[in-house]
Amino acid sequence: MYEQSKTAQVADEMQRYKLDILGISECRWIKSGKIRITSGHTILYSRHNDKHQSGIAIMISKDKIKTLLEWEPISDRLIRARLNSKYCKLTIIQCYAPTNDAEEEVKDEFYEKLQMVVSNVPQHDMLLIMGDLNAKVGTDNTDCEIFMVKHGCGIKNGNGERFIDFCLNNNQMIGGTIFPHKDIQKLTWKSPDGRTTNQIDHITVNSKWRKSLQDVRVCHGADVNSDHYLLKAIIKLKLRRNPKKQETKRKIDVEKLKIPDTRKSFNLKLKNRFCKKVLLLLKIFKKGGTRSRKCILKPPKKL
């Protein structure tokens, strides 16, 4: 993603698939910020300060950027954005979790930060957690039937157990296990040799808004030279443009004019201001010559 041509390629695929919001894991940029590219898309990114490693981003279309309320770069693995909609606010947390082989301390730190971010999300918001979680959840949904259906893929790994426990504790439904698609429409990653495929990218929604999640499936046509496939979710939610801030009219306390000192000070300031305007008009009148005098002194035409 740090290559300019790659960013344009991602924007083209986003337009082709008619995506309003796109989460990007491992963008490998430096520092954090907000940029608008030539296609009109806006990219919010959170990344490492020194190295082209990890990094996370959310890309928003030209139309939907008007609904953005706030955003927060949390780390090179987490970023949060909040958008306005007709019935509720939408909070999106884009993730890039450590791999299953990473040290336990690194995994603990990631989920602690994620939990802290989720805990600060307003209770009435629709919450979407998405990205490369490096978690295989499998098909076994014993003791977690409410938040996970049997339509996952593969066998659960250590990261999968962590992710499922996190979803149980935060009332998040794992979208990739809900819809009965073929495996080819659920497997999100392939190994460099093309022999191994796994379902490690996920999109979750809080159970309160489960019915708004219409579909989750993999799109194999999107080509950005990545070992991950595009995971697309259809969400029934009408985003709404942020209302313009109304200018507050300055109130004048007329009662203060009853105080002699205040009234005297007000009259003096009003007189000085009026005199300055009269002097300015006289200067214009003198510089303009006879022509400007005729224009100023000429009476208005009768209607």
Rank of each mutant, 00 (worst) to 15 (best):
Asn100Cys: 09
Asp101Ala: 10
Glu103Pro: 00
Glu103Asn: 08
Glu104Cys: 05
Glu105Ala: 13
Glu105Gln: 13
Val106Leu: 05
Val106Cys: 03
Val106Met: 02
Lys107Ser: 06
Asp108Pro: 06
Glu109Lys: 14
Glu109Pro: 03
Glu109Trp: 01
Phe110Trp: 12
Tyr111Ile: 03
Glu112Gly: 13
Lys113Thr: 02
Lys113Ser: 06
Leu114Gly: 11
Leu114Cys: 11
Leu114Ser: 09
Gln115Asp: 13
Met116Gly: 10
Met116Asn: 10
Met116Cys: 10
Val117Glu: 15
Ser119Val: 02
Asn120His: 08
Val121Glu: 00
Pro122Lys: 11
His124Ser: 11
His124Pro: 10
His124Met: 11
Met126Asn: 04
Met126Lys: 11
Leu127His: 05
Leu127Pro: 08
Leu128Met: 13
Ile129Gly: 10
Ile129Ser: 12
Ile129Asp: 05
Ile129Trp: 07
Met130Val: 07
Met130Tyr: 02
Met130Gly: 10
Asp132Tyr: 04
Asp132Ile: 09
Asp132Cys: 07
Leu133Ser: 09
Leu133Tyr: 10
Ala135Met: 00
Ala135Val: 05
Ala135Leu: 06
Ala135Trp: 01
Ala135His: 04
Ala135Phe: 00
Ala135Asp: 02
Lys136Val: 06
Val137Ser: 09
Gly138Lys: 06
Thr139Leu: 07
Asp140Arg: 01
Asn141Tyr: 02
Asp143Glu: 06
Asp143Asn: 01
Cys144Trp: 03
Glu145Met: 04
Glu145Pro: 03
Ile146Cys: 03
Lys150Asp: 04
His151Glu: 14
His151Ala: 07
Gly152Ala: 01
Gly152Pro: 02
Cys153Arg: 11
Cys153Val: 14
Cys153Thr: 03
Ile155Thr: 07
Ile155Asn: 07
Ile155Ser: 02
Lys156Met: 03
Asn157Lys: 00
Asn157Ile: 05
Gly158Met: 03
Asn159Cys: 00
Asn159Lys: 00
Asn159Ile: 00
Gly160Leu: 00
Phe163Ala: 04
Phe163Gln: 08
Phe163Thr: 03
Phe163Lys: 10
Ile164His: 08
Asp165Cys: 03
Asp165Val: 05
Asp165Trp: 02
Phe166Trp: 11
Phe166Gly: 14
Cys167Leu: 09
Asn169Val: 04
Asn169Tyr: 04
Asn169Pro: 10
Asn171Pro: 09
Asn171Leu: 14
Asn171Phe: 09
Gln172Ile: 14
Gln172Arg: 11
Gln172Val: 05
Met173Val: 15
Met173Pro: 00
Met173Trp: 02
Met173Arg: 13
Met173Ala: 12
Met173Glu: 03
Met173Gln: 11
Ile174Ser: 07
Gly175Gln: 12
Gly176Ser: 14
Gly176Ile: 05
Gly176Met: 13
Pro180Lys: 09
Pro180Val: 12
Lys182Arg: 15
Lys182Glu: 15
Asp183Asn: 15
Asp183Met: 13
Asp183Gly: 13
Ile184Thr: 15
Ile184Arg: 12
Leu187Gln: 15
Leu187Lys: 15
Thr188Ser: 15
Lys190Asp: 13
Lys190Phe: 13
Ser191Pro: 12
Asp193Phe: 05
Asp193Pro: 14
